[in-house]
């Protein structure tokens, strides 16, 4: 399998430093369950699972405990729950807090957690960077909350003008990212 450092040349609004694997995973010996993650949901598992999701301006955050080999992923649409709206993982601040809580409840240690951030594209060639777009706001809230919870960000594949298909392996913490 190829592991590489990826620079997305189209990502000017948000610097991209990515340590993930490009494309889609080859078949390997691990027998993984498969799950598709819809917007506004999250999934954590202590058994090997390949979680797939597709992102445009939405963002997904993965968490992984390398010792217990427990991993999880969320997928949110908007950065912050506003006003008295329903506390829903469709919002980044809720989705990330709930992902942290759920993975710890499954036995992960908060001290060992590693995060990765994906998505947050703005697919407009004419975007001139003069204004913060939705994708940037979605990425920023992830960085702020993870920093506040002292969870290190191991890799990011964010920004740019293209959607992404993400496949996250909960047992090995590897994320495969395909630009769409």
């Amino acid at each position: 399998m190829n592991s590489s450092l990826i620079q997305d040349p189209r990502s000017e609004a948000i610097p991209v430093q990515v340590e993930v694997r490009q494309g889609e995973p080859a078949t390997d010996s691990v027998d993984r369950s498969k799950a598709y993650l819809h917007a506004g949901h999250l999934f954590v598992s202590s058994t090997p699972t390949a979680i797939t999701t597709i992102l445009g301006s939405c963002v997904a955050v993965s968490l992984w405990d390398p010792e217990r080999r427990i991993g999880g992923l969320n997928h949110y649409l908007l950065p912050n729950r506003v006003g008295s709206g329903l506390s829903s993982p469709r919002f980044g601040n809720v989705a990330i807090a709930r992902l942290v809580d759920d993975i710890i409840a499954l036995g992960a240690s908060p001290r060992r957690l590693q995060a990765k951030i994906f998505g947050g594209a703005c697919i407009l060639a004419a975007f001139d960077g003069a204004r913060t777009h939705l994708g940037q706001s979605n990425v920023q809230i992830a960085r702020e909350i993870l920093n506040r919870r002292e969870v290190p960000i191991a890799a990011q594949a964010v920004g740019g003008q293209r959607g992404r298909k993400v496949i996250f392996h909960t047992d090995e913490g590897v994320a495969w990212v395909k630009l769409l």
Binding site: S57, L77, L78, C122, L124, A126, F127, D128, A130, R131, H133, L134, G135
Partner: peptide, 9 residues
């Protein structure tokens, strides 16, 4: 929010 993101540049 999605619509505004693309229209209010």
């Amino acid at each position: 929010t999605k619509v505004k993101n693309y229209l209010e540049q």
